[in-house]
Computed example of a mutant assay.
Amino acid sequence: MSLFGIAAGDLAVLVGSMLAAGVASGVLAGMLGVGGGAVIVPVLYQLFTFLDVPDEVRMHLCVGTSLAVIIPTSIRSLMSHHRRGAVDFKALRIWAVPVAVGTALGTLLAALIPSAGLELAFAVFGIVIGLQMLVLGTRTLKVRDDLPGPAGMSAYGLAIGLFSSLIGIGGGSLGNIVFAIHGRSMHQAVGTGAGLGLLISVPGAIGFMIAGWPEMAILPPLSVGYVSAIGALLLAPVAMLTAPLGVRIAHGFSSRQLEIALGTFLLLMGARFLFGVLV
C-alpha cells in the first residue's frame, strides 16, 4: 500500500520524523531566533536520503522546504517577542529591501551551485559561528555601542540575506551577532532575528519554487519546485505552535547562556554536514 508514491511504512517514518522536527524547529525559533532552519535542513536531508531523492537536487529541496517552513514559524515567534518588547522594528524596516535583494541573489546562486557546495556552505556557517559564540561570545567582539547607520545596516542585510538563502536558515543567528557586537542585548537580538527570518523566508521560498520548476521530473511527489509541500505542511503547524514555548525559555536564561546554547547547536550541525561532505 502506498500514498503519493511513498510506501506506507516509509510514509509513517516520514510523518513521525517531520513532526518531531517541527517541535524542535519551533522551540529553537522562539528560544534562539534562528528560524529553525538549522534543525530542519539536516533532518530533511536524512529523510530525503531515505526516500531516494536524487543527490543533485536533495540539498536544494532541503533548503527550499526549510525556508517555506520558516515563514509561519517566524511570524509566531515575532509576535511572541513583540509582546515582550524585544523587537527592534526600526532595524527591520532598514533591513527590508537589502535583505530581500540579498535573498534573491542567494537563491539565484543556489540554483547554480551543486548540492555538495550547499552542504559545505552550511558546514562552514555552523562551525565558524558556533566556535565564535562558544569560545569568545559576542561581548568580546563588541565593535561599538550601537547599530550603524542605514548604509552599514543595509550592507549587513544584503550579506545576511544572501548567505541565509544559500543554506536555508532564517538569518536569525547572523542577525544575533550583528546586534550583539553593536551593544544590543541578546534578548533583543533574538526577538529581532525572528523578524529577520520573515524577511528572508518569504522571497527565499518563492525563489526556490521557481528555480526548481525545471527539475520537477526528478523531484519527489507533492513538490513545488524545490519546496516539498508535504514537508512544509507537516512541519510548519507544529513549529508555529511550539515557538512561544521557546520564547518563554529564552527569557528565563541570561544572554551568555543563550550564546552557549546557540553556539553548541550550530557547531554540532556544522560538523555533521562537514562529515557528510568529506566522507
Rank of each mutant, 00 (worst) to 15 (best):
A271W: 01
T140Y: 14
G170Q: 08
G193S: 09
S2L: 08
M186T: 04
D55K: 07
L28R: 05
E259Y: 10
F179W: 02
A68E: 07
L233V: 15
A232G: 15
I230E: 09
S223V: 12
A38R: 00
R184K: 15
V190E: 03
G30R: 02
L141V: 08
L118I: 09
A8P: 06
I200P: 04
S165G: 10
F89A: 07
T192R: 02
T192I: 02
F273H: 14
G5I: 11
V135T: 09
G212M: 05
G231M: 06
G137H: 09
S255D: 15
A155L: 14
L47Y: 03
S154H: 02
A159K: 00
M133N: 03
A189K: 06
A250R: 11
A211K: 12
Q257L: 13
A7V: 10
R58M: 13
H251G: 02
G168Q: 06
M133P: 00
L105G: 01
G183S: 02
G130D: 04
V224D: 06
T65S: 15
G276N: 13
A217E: 15
R93T: 02
L258D: 09
S154D: 01
L136G: 15
G64L: 13
M240Y: 13
G130M: 01
L11D: 06
S173P: 01
L112R: 11
A21D: 04
G195H: 05
S223R: 11
C62M: 10
A21I: 12
A21T: 13
D55I: 10
R58D: 02
M31C: 12
